[in-house]
């Protein structure tokens, strides 16, 4: 996280889980960045990322990562084709540097 901090970048996560669950996850994993709760997937829908039936009986977000510049414009994105495989921190840092 120091590499992100040095660049003045903010990391924000969005997930369907409620705030108390996110607080528990942040505690367990030692996460310092905001984890935002999108329980009805309204924001996820605005980003076109709903995964209907992603888990049995419920909808979730498909994984996605965006790097936004200082004006909120997308400078880089990763829409993984396999939810096990996520972008590496170095790729994201390079995108921040390029933006």
């Amino acid at each position: 996280m120091d590499d992100f901090r040095r660049r003045g970048a903010r990391v924000v996560a969005v997930v369907v889980d409620p705030p108390d669950r996110n607080a528990q996850v942040a505690r367990e994993l030692g996460l310092e960045f905001p984890i935002l709760s999108d329980p009805d997937l309204a924001v996820t829908d605005r980003f076109g990322l709903r995964h209907a039936g992603g888990i049995p009986g419920a909808d979730i977000a498909r994984p996605a990562t965006f790097v936004l510049d200082r004006d909120g414009v997308v400078r880089w994105r990763d829409l993984t084709g396999n939810y096990r495989i996520r972008p590496r921190p170095d790729d994201i840092l390079r995108a921040i540097d390029a933006g």
Binding site: R10, V12, N22, V43, I60, F66, L68
Partner: peptide
């Protein structure tokens, strides 16, 4: 958008303007 963080406090994306933002959507721990 504005959503509640893990402390229940609202956070607006526009409030982060002026800095690069890494916005991550993930599946959750359900």
């Amino acid at each position: 958008f504005t959503l509640a963080d893990q402390r229940g406090e609202p956070l607006a994306l526009t409030g982060l303007r002026g800095a690069p933002v890494v916005l991550v959507f993930y599946r959750g721990f359900w």
